[in-house]
Design a protein around this nucleic acid. Structure first.
Length: 550
RNA sequence: GGCCUGUUGGUGAAAUGGUUAACACAUUGCCCUCUCAAGGCAACAUUCACGGGUUCAAAUCCCGUACAGGUCACCA
């Protein structure tokens, strides 16, 4: 077979040589131990939590090693592409603050970083394979392929386009010319030199050594539209772009023999591989499946932005899934960032990990509890400007006051952990503002010890916003004694009949009057921030409420 | 069906042949000069899917079974 003639028949004349590209994209000059990873999304929609997980890991490994993390958009499937797909991915990555070293928009020495713009490169390498007799055109229609599959199923043979089932493998040049003249559609397939009896070993950074049969499938490398398949683009790009560790979902391990062969046939040195186990979810009792963007809300990125769970909190959770000892490290190093942690591939889970929203919440609470009130204020403000503008303007109107409110029980040894998202802040502090305080005390059950006289006595004769916490508490005790409540709980427990109630009850009336709810953060701090005037007003509203509901 | 992987408590998991199977989340109970949150203490796997084997000794090694997951496209 005259491969040169075949190549001329199949490819455009002005294609640059593979040597040209090899020279253009020289090997990267990396310092010892530096690794190059990439994220390679397809523009078929917004990214989801599984993508995020994989990108997070990839970035962590690249940057902790002093290497490069680049973005390559894999848009070789025209059918699944959505409008503004590339932009939407770029936006999502920005929202999650990935530090991308090279990619569309930013550029880099190994571009273009969008596969549809690299068509000539793939075609040049495909041509080189044809020239070497390692690739050929295949004219089999979908129907023919299906027929082959059926006959293999019937005779219980391995399914696929290989060996004697690869009908177009041995087409003569004349037959090919004839078909091309008739404008028959064709793809370019690899003429696999593999033998199914041989073994290939994947030494995966996460999963360890996996032995698989060598590939003998004549896989498609160029589709009929002239665009490469994933397999071929992966080999060409990850070699030319100098990826040193290919991080991807573990659904790819079974096609590793194809990739291994493609690299070898193209004369490329193989990168290392890290196949990441999926994030899963339990459906019913026994079914475990991959988290799905369509079925599971928590798989969507919008779930987190709408709830106001910050990117860092999400990453903190992903970090604990990635390396379980991260969690301990993080509690022991409260002043460090997750990027200071040294992640290791071999600590990653080999099977899947169940995605636990409750655990994420708990990690998010820790994150929020470590924020300075001022920073919390600023971030929360950004969130509410987007999702609740009315509240945002109230926060801004009383900015200093709001920061003080957010600072309640914050700068202590054991800060509160009640905020798990920006959205939860509204519920937690809204009663501190007159504009949002519920003057009608909706939903408040009146108890017999809700005495208005006690409250009035408190505000006129005891309350002083300059009191220390101890002074405040002693005054509450005095108030108890004066109004027939037990200031000492042990005494109360011993003989409850002697009292109207205990100190908890007194605090409860004050709390309900001041906040409209039975539970709140530290009462002392709240009363101090509210100030005399506000409290007085609220006693007024409370009196009205009690009067109307006697 | 072929090929590959996995299986430790409700969940994530540690322990890579050697005492009572870490830790975290969740749950429950108790404690803490006011409620909640936090924090402290305690409870929660007679046992590491099951069955065999190797060994003085196995969650850890070997074999088989079951179950679960992945993959077998001109989709990535």
């Amino acid at each position: 077979m005259d491969y040169e003639k075949l190549a001329d028949l199949l490819f455009e004349k002005d294609l640059k040589s593979t040597e040209y590209y090899e020279k253009l994209y020289s090997r990267r000059n990396l310092k010892e131990g530096a690794i190059v990873t990439r994220c390679a999304p397809s523009p078929t929609g917004r990214i989801h939590i599984g993508n995020l997980y994989s990108y997070f890991i990839s970035e962590a490994f690249a940057h902790q090693s002093g290497g490069i993390f680049f973005l390559r958009v894999e848009d070789t499937d025209k059918k699944r592409a959505i409008e503004n797909g590339v932009q939407s991915i770029l936006d999502d990555l920005k929202e999650y603050n990935f530090k991308i070293d090279e990619g569309p928009e930013i550029g880099g020495d190994y571009g273009p970083y969008i596969q549809s713009e690299r068509k000539d490169i793939y075609r040049s390498f495909a041509k080189s394979l044809v020239l070497k007799g390692l690739a050929y055109p295949c004219f089999c229609s979908e129907d023919v392929l299906e027929e082959i599959r059926f006959s293999q199923e019937r005779s219980k043979k391995r399914i696929g386009y290989y060996g004697k089932y690869a009908r177009c493998r041995n087409l003569t040049l004349e037959e090919i010319e004839e078909k091309l003249k008739n404008k028959e559609d064709f793809v370019i397939r690899l003429k696999s030199p593999g033998n199914f009896e041989n073994k290939v070993i994947l030494d995966d950074l996460i999963k360890g050594k996996i032995e698989m049969p060598e590939n003998d499938l004549d896989v498609v490398i160029l589709k009929s539209d002239g665009i490469p398949t994933y397999h071929f683009a992966h080999a060409v790009d990850d070699y030319l772009m100098g990826t040193t560790v290919v991080t991807r979902g573990d659904e790819w391990v079974s096609s590793y023999p194809i990739h291994d062969q493609l690299f070898k046939v193209l004369g490329f040195s193989l990168p290392k591989f890290a196949h990441i186990a999926p994030l899963t979810k339990k459906e019913g009792e026994n079914v475990i499946r991959k988290l799905s963007k369509r079925k599971d809300n928590e798989a969507k990125i919008s779930y987190y932005s709408e709830k106001g769970i910050p990117d860092v909190a999400v990453k903190l959770y992903l970090a604990t899934i990635a390396n379980p000892d991260f969690e301990r490290w993080y509690t022991e190093n409260p002043d460090k960032s997750y990027s200071d942690f040294k992640f290791e591939f071999d600590k990653m889970s080999v099977g899947g990990s169940l995605f636990d929203v409750i655990k994420l919440q708990s990690i998010s609470k820790i994150y929020f509890s470590r924020l300075k009130a001022k920073d919390l204020y600023e971030e929360a403000l950004k969130y509410f400007k987007k999702y609740n503008n009315e509240f945002a303007s109230i926060m801004e109107k009383y900015d200093a006051y709001t920061i003080n409110v957010l600072n309640i029980e914050r700068e202590t040894l054991r800060p509160r952990k009640d905020i798990d998202s920006y959205s939860s802040i509204y519920e937690i502090i809204s009663y501190m503002y007159d504009e949002l305080f519920d003057k009608e005390y909706k939903g408040v059950d009146i108890k017999e010890f809700y005495e208005i006289e006690l409250l009035k006595d408190y505000i006129t004769n005891y309350y002083d916003e300059n009191d220390t916490k101890d002074e405040w508490f002693s005054k509450i005790k005095l108030l108890c004694d004066k109004h027939g409540f037990a200031s000492d709980n042990k005494e109360f427990k011993a003989s409850p009949e002697r009292f109207k109630g205990n100190i908890s009850n007194v605090c409860e009336v004050i709390r309900v009057m001041a906040t409209g709810r039975v539970q709140s953060p530290d009462l002392y701090e709240i009363l101090k921030l509210l100030g005399k005037k506000r409290i007085n007003d609220r006693i007024g509203y409370f009196e009205k409420y009690l009067g109307e509901n006697k």
